[in-house]
Design a protein around this nucleic acid. Sequence first.
DNA 1: TGTACATCAGTGAACGCGCGTTCACTGATGTAC
DNA 2: TGTACATCAGTGAACGCGCGTTCACTGATGTAC
Lengths: 206, 206
Amino acid sequence: MQSKARKRYHHGSLRQALIDVAVRVVAKHGIDALNLRQLAAHAGVTTGAPYHHFANRKALLSAIAEQGFLRFEADLTAERKTAHPDPGARLEALGRAYVRFAIVCPGYFRVMFHGDSSSSGATQAGMRAFQLLHDTIVDCQRGGLAPAGDPAPLVLTAWSAVHGLATLWVDAALPFEGLNPDRLTPEVGHLLVRMFAALARDQVTN
Amino acid sequence: MQSKARKRYHHGSLRQALIDVAVRVVAKHGIDALNLRQLAAHAGVTTGAPYHHFANRKALLSAIAEQGFLRFEADLTAERKTAHPDPGARLEALGRAYVRFAIVCPGYFRVMFHGDSSSSGATQAGMRAFQLLHDTIVDCQRGGLAPAGDPAPLVLTAWSAVHGLATLWVDAALPFEGLNPDRLTPEVGHLLVRMFAALARDQVTN
DNA sequence: TGTACATCAGTGAACGCGCGTTCACTGATGTAC
DNA sequence: TGTACATCAGTGAACGCGCGTTCACTGATGTAC
C-alpha cells in the first residue's frame, strides 16, 4: 500500500506518517539522531514537506511527546476498566502497563522524558496517569493492602520503581549479567504489591 | 587563580578543566548542547586545543562517563565503610547515596546513562556499584531484614526505585504538584527498607 | 454536471550557519651532555 | 650552569558538511455557482 500511496502527490496523512517514522528512528538511534531531512526521505517526501505540518523540529518533538502521553494514559486507563480481584492486583497491573509501554514504545518514551517538551496537553495527560496510580494506592490503603497514612511516599516509591525499571530497560543501562529483566519485571511488580501489603499487616499488628 | 592561569601558554590541566566545564554544561543544558568549540572557549583556550586531550567529541563523553562511574562507585563504597547499625541502615544509606549523586552531579549522571558510552572502565565501575547493592541486600536477607530466596527481584526493585527517583529528579519529570521529592526522598528509602523487613517477618510468620 | 477559483500540501533548489575536525605553526618544558 | 634539541600543548585560520529552514513554484482537492 505504501508503494501505491507514494505515487500520489498528496500523501494524505503525512503528519502521522512523520511521527511514526520519527518514533521508530528515536527508538533505534536516540533523539539526537532525529533529523528532519532523513525523516522526510523515509516518509517518501521532499525536505520542505514536513514544514506544512510542523513549525520546526521542536514542534515535531512536542507533538510526539503529547501523543505519547495520551497513549500512555490510555494504556493505564484501560487497566482501570479491566476487572481485577482487588486494588492490589490493579496496582500491579498498572505497574506492568507502565513498563510495558516503555518496552513496546521506547521511541515515545524517550521523547516524553527527554524531549524538553512541556506542552500543556502532555503534562495534563501525565498528571492524569499519575492520578490513576495515586487513586489506586489510596484504594489499596482502604482495603488494608498498603500501609495507612500519607500516601505520597508510597506513590513516589511505586512510581520511581516502575519508571526506573522502564528507564533502565530503554537505556539498556542494566550493567549486570545474570539478571534478566524480562523475567524479573513481573516479579518486581508482584514484590512491590506484596511488600505494601506486608507493611500494612505489620502496622495492624503493632 | 583562573585569571592568572589563563595567561600561561600551557594550561597545565586542560583535560580535567574541559571535563569540569562539560559536566556543568550538560547539567544545565543537556548533552545535546555540549559543543567542543564553546567548551574550549569556556576553558579559555582555542578550538584546536581539546584535540590534544580527546580524539573527538565521543571520546570526551566516554571520559566523562568513566570518571562519573568511578566517582559514583566511590560514593557508594564510602557508605560501606561508614558504620551502620545493621544491613538495613546500610541499604538505606546506599540508596540515598545513589540519589544524592544524581542530584549533586546531574551532568555526570546524564552522560553516564545517556552518553552511549560503553567504555570498559565505566561498565566495570558500574558493575562494582551494583555488586555493592547486591551484597548489602544479601546481608539483609541473612539478618532477617529482607525476604529470603532469590535476591535478584529484591536487587532489581531497589535499584529501579533509586534509579527511577534519581532520573525523575534529573529530568525534572515529576509532573505532579504537591509532591516534594526533596522531602520525600529519604522517606522512600526508609519505606523500602521497612517493606523489605516487613515482608521478611511475614515469611517467618507463615 | 461542468467551470472558476481558493486553498492545501506537495516539489526541489538554495541559503546559511553551527560545529566537528584538521593542520601548519609556535611557545614552553624537560632532558641529555 | 649553560646549550641544543626533542617533545608536548597551545594558536588561529580554514575546511567542509550536515541539517534546519525558507521560498517561489506547482499539482491536487474541494467548494460556490
